[in-house]
Amino acid sequence: MSASVLETRDVRCTFSVRQGLFKPKRPLHAVNGVSLTLRKGEVLGLVGESGCGKSTLARMLLGLQAPTGGEILFEGQSIGRLDRASITRKIQTVFQDPYSSLNPRKSISSIVSLPLRVHKIGNPADWQNQVERMLDMVGLPRRVYHSYPNQLSGGQRQRVAIARALIMRPEVIICDEPTSSLDVSVQAQILNLLRELRQELGLTYLLISHNLAVIDYLASRIAVMHLGRIVEEGTTDTIMRQPSHPYTKALLASVLTPEPGLGVPATDLGTSFPSPLAPPPGCTFHPRCPAAMQVCKEAAPKPRAQADGGMVECHLYT
């Protein structure tokens, strides 16, 4: 097993939010004790539904959001002790929305070269050269060098975002829903690009998505997140073929592949939708879980190791 590049230990992020003007502030546990390991050269898929804390976790890994608890280690060193600049040299990101993540007033050349200028890397005379090499690498024509983001399509903008991430020669790229806002024909181009770049450059990815079919295609391991916690983790084969957690099973059943005749499965999840501001007691999935038992309403399940090196957090397995 290869060495860990990034590791979180019981990491937490609690926001204090007000629901109405005169209402008191309440704690929102966006990330509620997550322990994950990203190993060198692997693609770890992180899947979960809106608001479960995926982006908050990503922002903490990037050093953009301070954890309110727990610890994050980069190559064994606590990130709190490393400076921001050295983190961004090693960990880069590609965000979901190629429309808002690029500054509309800057040309593509200045967007892609920005990290070099900020970190004063290399010789300024060589920057143009490097930008052009990156454009080639992500499959953009060199003529977009002087273009602006609004002159490019969604897929081209996402290629710009990937070029900007790669120019730092990072070890880890955190892709937060890199294809969610793209059409499928463009999504396929970007997934192919991410796959090729990983092979060529030996990159390590954390791939965040709500689409298990996308994760299945690229990831070697999958972590399933629900209301701030990882509820199951395992190899892609285990998660996709023999999932244990009822939430993973529901996510898998909800993947509507283009296979006619299968219909839309009934998931038996009911209509309640737990709020992250007032999470249900016990297992936070219990109001929707078709397998819920009395104990699930009373006590939170503890993580339990699985045979393939993964883990599951559910009373059915304790």
Binding site: E49, L212, A250, S254, L256, V264, A266
Partner: peptide
């Protein structure tokens, strides 16, 4: 969300 999408489509059908 995907699980809710599946529920709503199941219902519509």
């Amino acid at each position: 969300d995907v699980t809710i999408q599946a529920q709503i489509l199941h219902l519509l059908v």
